[in-house]
Structure formats: C-alpha cells, structure tokens
C-alpha cells in the first residue's frame, strides 16, 4: 500500500459521497447542478489564462530547444528540417506533430539490466500507444457530449456518434470511445502502481487526476449502460446552463449529479495541476524555439547591465606606464 494512491483514491471516493449524499439526502440539486458548474467554468477559464500569461511573461534566458537531428549548417550537409527546425514553419510542423501524435513520447526507451548485469535499452511503445488512445478517446467522448449542449445538434456531432457506435451492440448501443477511455486509464494507472521506478516518482498529484477521470468515466458508463437516467431531462438541465436559463428538471438521479460534480472538480482543478500540460506544450521553450543558435546571437533578456572595462580601455589608461615598465602593448600610442 502506498499513501500516494491510497490518498487519491480516498479523495475521489469522498467526492463521490459528497455529491451523492448532497443530492439524495440534502437535496442540494441547485448547488451541484448549477452553481458549482458555473463556478468551475469561471475558475477554469481565468486560471488557464493566468497560467499561460504567467508563462508567457517568464523570460527564456537561453535558446534551449531539444534537437533530434542535424542542425542546418554547411550547404552540403542535409539538415533535419523538422527535428531541428531553423525556420518558423519547421517549428510549426514540429509542434503540430508533437501535439497530434506525441512524437517525443514515441521515442521513449526503457533501460534495464538483463541476465544479471547486461545493460539493455528497449524501445518502449506501450506508454505512447495508451497515451494516444487515452487522449483521443477523451476528445471523442468530449465532442460527443456536445449533443447535451447544442440545440439543434450539428451534423458532425451526429456523424461522430454514428461512427463511434458503429458496432451496434446492445441498446443503448456501445460507444467505443467510452470503453477505450476506461481501458487506457486503467493501463496508465497500473503502470504507475506496478512498475517500481515509476511508482517511486509518482505522487498523489499523479494519481488523483487518474482516479478522478476514472470516476467520470465510470459514472458515465454506469449511466449509459446500467443505471439508466432520463437523458431528455438531463439535456434540459445542460441546455439551461449554456443558455443562462438554469433549471433543475425533476427525476434526475444522484448518479448524474456525481458525474457533473466530478467534471466540475476536474475543470476547476485543471489550471493548478499537471493537467495544464495541455496549455504548457505550446509554451515549452524546448519545443517552440528555432534552433538558429549558431546563426543568431541570443542575448539573455534579464542580463544584468554589468559595467565592463575592456582590455582596450585598460591599455588606453595605462599605456604609458606599461611601456615604461617594458610590458608588451597592442597599440604603441
């Protein structure tokens, strides 16, 4: 047992109970269904913008892009235009590929001692694969949820739904992204729990988001396949929220409020946690700078303005004395 993941798990269970008891026993529907979601959205947007502005204002003393290829140099040496970008366009392509396909994670290697003391490096692709599965299924679920927030529902959301549900298993039909989301989360969690090196560097702030998103996914899956809720009623609530005419329809079960509470906690927690890597990736100097380190001189923007006394000035000041003492000088007069 490890205090980091135990504490995170208990925190999520407490959140579950808070919302469930708050709604079912104390009847705080308006609080959990209207006030908290609004508050969470405000915290999310303000917090996110503040974080980004803070990062943007932080000076970057040196160009520190990480490179994965030949820098542009002599004309007869082929440069790696994307992996070592010297132009803005190269940086753009590199960022795009990083954000869409997690290329740096793709290069992940695992170091291991084998057969006693043989050091080996192995290309470790599972993290990349499941990270990609996780992020894309999350995105798909999120986009599908737009059906609760838009009226009329645009055709592209309906199309996404039909693609996601094309297996047509059961009623209501299975949505692949929801299941894949939970499976990928499970991998990401077990990886932290079972690989000793990763457990060692994992903190509560690593486990908590995982458990929280699992809580969101599990309550969502329960609502869809097992403990049915009145979707038309829920849409009244969500549409009420986004049109600023909030209402609380009757007959929506506590489970929905738990899902909504988890989501509120998630987005309010977002700007203050590791989840901010979503915005941080754009602000990473190791990724978003050009590698024109040899072509251009970069000056540290917060260099202290040191009073310098160059050798030339020194010689001007003491030339006669130096000549008198027989010391060599660069200029005779």
């Amino acid at each position: 047992m490890n205090i980091n993941y135990l504490a995170s798990l208990i925190a999520v269970i407490v959140l579950f109970l808070l919302a469930y008891v708050g709604v079912e026993a104390a009847g705080l529907r308006y609080f959990f269904g209207v006030l908290l979601p609004y508050l969470a959205v405000i915290i999310f947007i303000v917090g996110f913008v503040k974080k980004i502005v803070g990062w943007a204002k932080t000076p970057v003393p040196f160009p520190i892009p990480t490179t994965c290829g030949q820098q542009e140099t002599l004309s007869w040496i082929k440069p790696a235009k994307i992996d070592n970008p010297t132009t803005g366009f190269g940086v753009f392509v590199r960022m795009l590929l990083e954000i869409l396909f997690f290329r740096s994670l793709f290069r992940n290697t695992k170091m291991e001692l084998r057969e006693g003391d043989k050091l080996s490096y192995e290309w470790e692709k599972w993290l990349w694969l499941f990270a990609l599965a996780f992020h894309y299924s999350f995105l798909t679920v999120l986009l599908r949820h737009l059906r609760f927030f838009l009226e009329p529902v645009p055709g592209c959301v309906k199309f996404l739904e039909s693609m996601d549900g094309f297996l047509q298993i059961g009623l209501p039909g299975i949505m692949i992204s929801g299941i894949l989301l939970l499976a990928a989360l499970l991998f990401l969690l077990l990886r932290r729990i079972f690989i000793p090196q990763i457990r060692y560097i994992s903190l509560a702030s690593d486990y908590f988001p995982l458990f929280l998103i699992m809580g969101i996914a599990i309550t969502g899956i329960l609502m869809r396949y097992f403990i049915r809720v009145d979707i038309a009623g829920i849409k009244e609530l969500t549409i009420g929220l986004v049109t600023f005419h909030p209402i609380i329809p009757d007959g929506i079960g506590g489970l929905f409020y738990v899902h909504l509470f988890f989501v509120s906690v998630f987005i309010a927690y977002f700007p203050f946690s590791k989840l901010m890597h979503a915005g941080g990736i754009f602000m990473s100097p190791t990724r978003n700078l050009t590698t024109n380190t040899r072509a251009t001189r970069h000056i540290n923007p917060w260099n202290y303005d040191v009073k310098v006394h160059t050798y030339e000035e020194y010689e001007d000041e003491f030339r006669e004395k130096m000549i008198g003492a027989g010391l060599p000088v660069e200029k005779e007069s």
Partner: peptide
C-alpha cells in the same frame, strides 16, 4: 482562440430559451 472554443456552447445557443420537446 482557446476561450472561443471553450465557450462555444454558450454562444452557439445565443442565450435563447430552448424548450424541451
């Protein structure tokens, strides 16, 4: 762009009163 995307559902519905069917 980020704030625009996040608040998309708010301005898509233009604060109309949308009655349930």
């Amino acid at each position: 762009i980020f704030v625009g995307i996040i608040t998309f559902p708010f301005w898509f519905n233009q604060a109309k009163v949308i009655a349930p069917p």
